[in-house]
């Protein structure tokens, strides 16, 4: 069993890169991503799981980074918006641009990651599948319709 101490050294795999850092166990993954690693594309709204802005992919699945301690993510691979594409934009990102699926953009990284995970597991999602998948993400600007349109277009492989 691990001995109890104030800070612990952990190794995280973020966007395919290994990071060694010292964290207090109480540090949330969202805060470590933003404040320790400078990955500020992960946004923080409510810190109790409701708004979805902090959603990242853990082993390919969407999870709330505000409801996971960074120390728990040891041994998993975490993907943030910064890791979505090495250069340029993915088809989904271009579809968001083309379909006006964002206004202020605060919610957008989390929508993109959630939709990326959906499209990986469901090649040909229905509108209902999409609405269900993104039901845990709040957008205060768009009214969602354009987001749904963008994800549908990306799923169908329509290029802008």
């Amino acid at each position: 069993m691990k001995t109890i101490q104030a800070t612990q050294s952990i190794t995280l795999n973020i966007n395919g890169q290994t990071h060694s850092l010292d964290v207090e166990p109480r540090f949330l993954l969202s805060d470590v991503l933003r404040h320790k690693l400078g990955l500020t594309g992960t946004h923080v709204g409510c810190e109790h799981g409701v708004c979805g802005a902090c959603t990242v992919l853990v082993d390919g699945k969407p999870e709330r980074s505000c409801l996971v301690f960074a120390i728990q993510a040891e041994g998993s691979s975490v993907e943030t918006i910064e890791g979505l594409s090495a250069d340029g934009m993915t088809r989904l990102q271009r579809a968001f641009q083309e379909h006006h699926a964002l206004q202020c953009g605060f919610c957008t990284p989390a929508f993109l990651l959630t939709a990326t995970a959906l499209l990986k597991q469901t090649k040909d999602p229905t509108e209902q599948d999409i609405r269900e998948a993104i039901s845990g993400n709040i957008c205060r600007c768009t009214g969602y319709q354009f987001i749904v349109d963008a994800i549908l277009a990306a799923a169908k492989g329509e290029e802008a």
């Binding site: 979805g52 709330r64 409801l67 269900e132 845990g136």
Partner: peptide
Amino acid sequence: VGHWAIRNR
């Protein structure tokens, strides 16, 4: 139960 991201954990 909750949303997809909640159910995954």
